[in-house]
Design a protein around this nucleic acid. Sequence first.
DNA 1: AAAAAGCCCAACCGCGAAGGC
DNA 2: AGCCTTCGCGGTTGGGCTTTT
Length: 273
Amino acid sequence: MGRQPCCDKVGLKRGPWTIEEDHKLMNFILNNGIHCWRMVPKLAGLLRCGKSCRLRWINYLRPDLKRGGFTEMEEDQIIQLHSRLGNRWSKIASHFPGRTDNEIKNHWNTRIKKRLKLLGVDPVTHMPTEQKDHIDEDNNNTKLQPNVSQGSEDNVEIKSLESDGTKEMTKAEGKGEENMVTWDDTAELLNNFEMLCSQLDMGSWVSQETNTSTNSLCSSSVSVDDSSNLSMGESTYLQENSLKQWVDSMDSILSWDGFNPLDQDIFFMENRE
DNA sequence: AAAAAGCCCAACCGCGAAGGC
DNA sequence: AGCCTTCGCGGTTGGGCTTTT
């Protein structure tokens, strides 16, 4: 017996979203906020499942989304983060205000992978292709794979916290030995990363980033120990700025005349503050 | 000009985690 | 403790668009 569908799909619409559907979803969320995705389509008058609504909001309608292609600097930073975090796209996306995990994932799969291959770097291990083969032979039985190493970031977080004397439990502690990463392993990761930097000539901007405390938009942290808090610190300035940009852009794209005010008395919904 | 191939990205699917009961 | 529901994540796919032949 298979898994139950996330919702009753009979009569639900699938495929690309229409402008009218976007209007409904946006209008609803902006007026009521998000409390339960499952209820959103019903209350917003959409023939979609909650999951689809969530995805549409996160990947396309969200006010703080940044549009446009990735800059080379962003690409380099993605490479860097990927070398540390592996395919944890949401973690990576948290370093890029206004970018979605889906966007970054797509960009990685369509562009960055090719770019790395052209440079002779394995996009999975972030090592030069030849060296990777060599190491594969040598360490065929080692537990740590140099790239993804699920939990490597978590372990790094532990180390940094311990240094503050405020050790915190993380998921990594419950994962057992198979995912444990030693300090040597972490050092190896950093070495690989430095090697990659030199290959991609990223050193200049990395040091620039490190030495520059301003430029909040691009300061999405390449350091190891502050990665988790960055999106929290994205500051009201960014939000207000992006919201304004979004409103401006949406004004040119959408006709707000078509919006109908939704009922304000949905009993369990809180009003926006 | 038309067909084929390649590229890109929005959207879907299925799984695991988290939380409530 | 175990079940159920919901959410979030990562992998994958489908189709539109662009480029090449």
